[in-house]
Simulated assay, not measured.
Amino acid sequence: MGTSDAGGRSHAAPSDALTPYLALDLHGLLRALQERPLAPGDLAPEVWRSLVELVTQQVQHRGGDLDVEGWGVCSAVVTHVLAAAVAADAYPRHEALVRRLHLTGAALDFAGRTDARAALLDARGAVGLAVRALPADVDAVAADADRWRTLPRAEVLRLRRVRHVLTPALALADRSGDERLDHWRDVLPRLP
Rank of each mutant, 00 (worst) to 15 (best):
A106W: 02
H94Y: 08
G70V: 14
V73N: 02
Q58M: 04
R93P: 03
R124D: 14
T56S: 14
E69C: 00
A96T: 11
A83G: 13
V73S: 09
V59P: 02
L108C: 09
D109A: 15
R117G: 12
V68W: 00
L101R: 09
R93T: 01
L66I: 08
G125K: 12
R99S: 10
A83T: 10
A130G: 09
R62M: 02
R100E: 07
T104M: 07
T114N: 06
Q60K: 14
A87E: 14
R132M: 09
L97I: 11
R100Y: 05
Q60S: 10
A85Q: 05
G125R: 13
R99P: 01
A87S: 14
L97H: 10
A123G: 06
A130L: 01
V68Y: 01
V68A: 15
A119W: 00
A116E: 14
E69N: 11
L129W: 11
D89M: 04
R113C: 08
G112R: 13
G70C: 12
V127S: 09
G128D: 08
H94E: 10
A90R: 00
R62F: 03
V98I: 10
G72K: 15
F110N: 01
V68K: 11
L134H: 06
A84F: 04
A85Y: 05
T56H: 12
A111P: 04
G70D: 08
T56P: 06
Q58K: 15
A87C: 08
T114Q: 12
A83W: 00
L134R: 03
D115Q: 01
A133R: 13
S75Q: 01
A76R: 15
H102C: 00
P92G: 08
L108N: 08
H61S: 15
A88T: 06
R117C: 03
G64P: 11
W71G: 00
L66D: 08
A106F: 01
A119H: 12
G125Y: 11
V131R: 09
L129N: 03
D65H: 12
T79M: 07
A123E: 03
V131P: 02
R99T: 15
A84S: 15
R124T: 15
G128P: 15
G70K: 11
D65T: 15
C74I: 05
